[in-house]
Write a protein that binds this DNA or RNA. Sequence first.
RNA 1: GAGGCUAUGGCUCAAUGGCGGAGCAUCUGACUGUGGAUCAGAGGGUUGUGGGUUCGACCCCCACUAGCCUCCCCA
Length: 423
Amino acid sequence: MKEIIQRVKGTRDFYPEDMAFRTWLHQQIRNVSERFGYQEYDAPFLEKLDLYAAKSGEELVKEQAFVFMDRGGSEISLRPELTPSLARMVAQKQNELVYPLRLWSFGPFWRYEQPQKGRTREFFQWNIDLIGSSGYQSDAELLAICADFFRQVGLTPDKVRININNRRLMDSELQKIGISQEQKQIVFRMIDRRDKMRQDEWFTYGLSQNLTAESLNALRLLLDNRELWRESPELTEIFNLLKIMGCAEYFDFDPQVIRGLLYYTGTVFEARDAAKDGRALLGGGRYENLVGDVGGDPLSGVGFAMGDVMIQVILEKYGLIPALTVQPAKVVVTCFDKESLSDSYALASVLRAAGIKTLCYPEYVKLDRQMKYANRIHARAVIISGPDEQAAGKITIKDLENRTQMTIDRSLLVETLESMNIF
RNA sequence: GAGGCUAUGGCUCAAUGGCGGAGCAUCUGACUGUGGAUCAGAGGGUUGUGGGUUCGACCCCCACUAGCCUCCCCA
């Protein structure tokens, strides 16, 4: 045990049971995405670091990406996000793609962060984007996709909330209360911290950041104004359209949602546990300059990303993960003795040819061992062919679920199994 | 990058500074052609790693590693 080399920090092993969940999640995502007419795509897991560095030049990218030098001396990064790769893919075929372009993806990403609840260093993420349409209808569509996903997996509006804001609205409102362009970064940070600090601490902190008491009071009023969205024609239209699409019950306006503001230009949103438990389940918004940074013509898009870790946490919390039985095979063909081993393999082949998931016990051991094995792997039926059966041209089928057993003509094997209603 | 808690058999956990145990799981048998139950028995440990204190360390101290949690951050 001591000598087993440990996993890389922040990675997870996926045993078949874990894999069943991941596959299930991928399927839920596929169902929702395709229901809205989106196509699946993927990009390389490895990219040149330049792809991320070029984009907004954030030091964070360099600090949080898994970077290494390849044998040719290039700086390579395991992809920390998908959007830059998508931007390149769009730019490469900018004039031949059909717009609006609707794409989704589900795959692994890596970020060198401190693992904790809801966060690992290697994780899977659903990315979905609508590119080449700047209307509010597209924003509403992506929001409806979020809601549809939650509804599909049983996360009802009392369990999960999608909070929406608009960056332009915030810009103009902040300007109205006299926040200068230079103060904006500080103010965004303060907005982000508001729920984490006591009111008086927050106020004192603001003063220490050279904000006036007047601005802080105005900011407080602004952040408490849940009707502020009415000032934004765009948000008004979006909320209206969400109502028409029948999912308005999932959404709240929240002026404290700011998410990656260097990136987003209009609508921004994130989803959280309604009890404000844990980190965000997903986040996204409207970006105006998707392909400009990688050398294409500016193209507007809207999209969001959802990680597998936090969604698993919340699905577990609410008991919404279905019982995913891991069943490698429906039928186990036993091996009665040394002489009948080849017959067992022949029988298994017949069943597989009929499309039945079948495995063969690979050696002769006592029959009860083989039965126990079949039971442990949750097989539905066991095939037994011993000397008695072989002499009579028969075969025995044991139904593990009903605990019944019958001996039939060899030629009736496949149809008998099919009639057992096990598929 | 900062802090807190934790690390004992495959798993979940006990053990006042003085003989490291239990439950579950595994294997074997009861049952020489039959699975989930029951009973009996067996195997399995350098107590995460490396130092230190002590007559004596799972226990106390230090460092390291990993996990969980919180802060920071979150494209």
